[in-house]
Amino acid sequence: MNTLVIVLSLLAGAYLVAVLEAWLATGRFRLAAPAWAAVALLGRESIVPRTPDRIFFETAPVLLLVVALLVSAVLPLSPGLIIADMTTGALFVNAVLAYVPVALLMAGWGPNGGYALVGGWRFLGQTIAYSMLIVMPITAVAMRAESLLTTAVVTSQGAVWNIVYQPLGFVLFFTAAMAVSFLPPFDLPTAGGELAGGVEAEYTGVRLGVFRLGRMVLVVSLAAVTTVFYLGGWMGPVLPPWAWSAIKILAVSSTMLLTGHYLPRIREAHLLAWCWKLGIPLALLNIFIVGVMVLIWP
């Protein structure tokens, strides 16, 4: 039951995010746009390139979708509404997100195409840049909650939300979350106009549909992770808990899309340099500050 509700709400969220993305791209607000795009993709021929690595080519879009769904399995949308309240929930989020580059690497290698290959390897470089910025802010969040349970993380924010308690961690995690879901300005593996779609270049028809759906669900899942870890999850006045979750998740995902819309695409070398020379020291500083604060003002 919980599983069904969460999966359906994720899909609904992904649809709304797709509407927003289409709005930003075309400048027109059309509620039916993603539906028509999906129908068009389903109807189109599914071309398989010459001499592909068939296993990877077929698995990659599905793996991306599965990863995106698994992330949300440990996130509570309201008290009790959670698929699996794992004791190692916060670590599990990290573990699952580590499979996004695996999916993209497969998608890059599988179709035996130049642009796709460049896109796939590029994302691996991007992984090396962002992965520490996912792990270290989550460490600080778990330190405050004194638990890896995601529900405990939410209840630990009863007095003050983590966005106020550890703003530095929020900014780092938000940036890294955008990099995980390769949203602009971190859309290096797809890079329209430069790589001709990158990892998506050789995909058509149903497979492209699944890939895009997986990416949208990933965006929503990461927004949900940000909500649970930094924005107090389901907490809020007046409205019921699930409504607050929905509002916050949508707000975070549209902020992600809007931020990317107004920024130029970052260069791979710059991304690596900034993440390692600036991001990681800041993340360590964040852990230190939170450690001191937990002692004096829990």
């Binding site: 794992m86 004791t87 190692t88 670590l91 573990a95 580590a98 499979y99 691996l124 992984t127 090396i128």
Partner: peptide, 18 residues
């Protein structure tokens, strides 16, 4: 061994992609 299992799954993904 839940912690070790999840840790193993997490560490190996990045390691083997590299």
């Amino acid at each position: 061994a839940e912690f070790l299992g999840v840790l193993q799954i997490m560490m190996m993904a990045t390691e083997m992609s590299i």
